[in-house]
Design a protein around this nucleic acid. Structure first.
Lengths: 336, 336
DNA sequence: CTGTTAGCGCATTCAC
DNA sequence: GTGAATGCGCTAACAG
């Protein structure tokens, strides 16, 4: 291990000068700078990042808590986070929680032990353990795309209510009247917002909603498959199915095809997220585009402000969505 | 910042005892342990991870270099790495390189500065800069799914040659004779292996290969789209297209459909990776399944052995693949 | 089993 | 502009 002392001896200066040369070169004469740099080069010296972090008390790392790594929507958010972090000299510690509370606790405690300076949560749960909760009040944390209930942490999200309305308006404009809904986690705020948005339009149009048309409990492909089976068992079949993310929509389309039905001729399908593959499905999926990359960037920027104790302009950022109309949705089939 | 000293005063013991109680509880009396734990609780104390790492010299973190975060195949590998790391008390620093050499250099240098103990490379390039290369010889590094040429680092990969053969045998058994190939990065070893495997079977069967039937330069959806356009412009149209990953296959299928052709009736399509969505495409994709998750786990386990300076049994692990036959491939169309 | 002591490698006072 | 000295928070060696 070549350390700062060795370099200082090699250069014939003090350790302080070496440190200064590397951190704030302007404080040092050009001549000594050259001497030091030559010695650094010759010794193959790398400042020990751990040691300097102990001194400054900041790790320049953040933890990102993500329920899983298979949902490409999350990855796109993380890409944005990572990019912004990289630009500002921060590193990203990946915390794949698998949705398990204990894992969340472990990763969250990394901030408490100075291993990371802040935390971005992609799920809707409060990640700290009971025991840590009291310590957690002052630590920098941001949630993105979801929202942590009953807590005052900043969050970045979509106007999910308006997005829900957009989807429903779109389908109604095609003459649909019977809808199926396949949800993800129902405990989260985004479910409530999206669903409320959809229902508000139905109410305005005088369309009835039946509880049996709402199925699904998780954001997975299989949820779509099982959802279709349940929905098509109903007395009145839906002519349009609203899926609460693109993964569910993928399973939904797959199962509809398997049953020999056509999309959108027999049933229209819509999603949420506008994941990369959605544009290339057969047929391409109508969905709500979320600016995932940008959401990630924003989340990091807000987090960094908290870390640097800068005052936040606002603790809530709502980003614009866009309804992307593709071929998976179309006119309702005429009555037989 | 509550530190170990405050806790020691609160508990009426020395700092060493506090440290011991937390790290190796068996070395202290039950009674003092209780005293200390009570004080820890009361002070809301968390050991400063940075400080203890400076002492031990190990960060218990590793860096994972990944060309991009949108390819779900990579994410599955990272999931395996992260899982294995978590089990052994390591954290994963995410290094999204975007395939850029400078980014690789930066992330790789984290190992040189004690920010991480080791490195897993998912791309095929040597990640260190010219300048760092000499220091890099002794650092723990593993590559997975790709292989770093001219270097002696361990790697985990598939028998890509055999997999290439399997794909070609499958298609030939369906009577295909005219093939198109849409490749990803041609500079990598896996391209050479897979392609050589395919070609070896063609040679054995006396089937000719024409350079114009090989197109594509990157592992992206668009590559598939452009690839199809190029291939279908040829004098003799292929009846089967071998894509070098599932993303390319996705674009390929999309463009074939857009041109009004049917899969597999007019053209068969095969992929590589068996990404999660591939099973749900319309039609489902025939592809080579790679045990990505397991590859990630293995890579981490090998890396940890290197970090701990344990001798490696072997520096090369070949994992089994599997040809997954789905509906995107079928009998060659009969001659018109 | 516990306390004292001495660092880990570096950044930052304070003199000069 | 530079050097000497101090300490970040913790762990490990040694004594007792």
């Amino acid at each position: 291990m070549t350390n700062i002392k060795k370099v200082s001896e090699l250069a014939g200066v003090s350790t302080a000068t070496v440190s200064r040369t590397l951190k704030s070169p302007s404080l040092v004469t050009e001549k000594t700078r050259e001497k030091v740099m030559a010695a650094v080069q010759r010794a193959g010296y790398r400042p020990n990042w751990l040691a300097s972090s102990v001194k400054t008390g900041r790790s320049n790392s953040i933890v990102v808590l993500v329920p899983n790594l298979v949902n490409p929507f999350f990855m796109r958010i993380i890409e944005g986070i990572e990019q912004a972090a990289q630009e500002q000299g921060y590193s990203v510690l990946l915390g794949d929680t698998q949705g398990k509370g204990m894992r969340e606790n472990e990763y969250a405690s990394m901030v408490l032990s100075n291993r990371a300076d802040g935390l971005i949560q992609l799920d809707h749960s409060f990640p700290f353990s009971e025991n840590d909760a009291s310590l957690a009040d002052t630590i920098p944390m941001v949630s993105v795309c979801e929202r942590i209930p009953e807590k005052r942490y900043p969050y970045i999200e979509l106007d999910n209510y308006a997005a829900g309305r957009a989807v429903m308006n779109h389908l109604i404009s095609y003459g649909h009247e019977h809808f199926g809904f396949i949800a993800g986690q129902r405990s989260s705020q985004i479910f409530r917002d999206r669903f409320a948005g959809m229902k508000s339009v139905m109410d305005e149009e005088g369309l009835a909603f039946d509880d049996s048309m709402l199925v699904g409990e998780s954001y997975q492909i299989d949820t779509g498959i099982e959802g279709v089976r349940a929905l098509l068992d109903n007395a009145t079949r839906p002519t349009a199915i609203c899926c609460f993310n693109d993964d569910i929509a993928l399973g939904t389309m797959h199962e509809i095809h398997r049953q020999g039905l056509r999309i959108p001729d027999d049933i229209s399908v819509t999603g949420f997220d506008n994941v990369r593959v959605s544009a290339y499905l057969n047929p391409p999926l109508t969905t709500i585009d979320q600016p995932a990359y940008e959401m990630g960037r924003r989340a990091f920027n807000v987090l960094v402000q908290m870390i640097k104790q800068e005052p936040l302009k606002r603790s809530r950022e709502i980003l614009p969505f866009q309804l992307v109309e593709r071929e998976s949705s179309g006119p309702a089939p005429s009555h037989s």
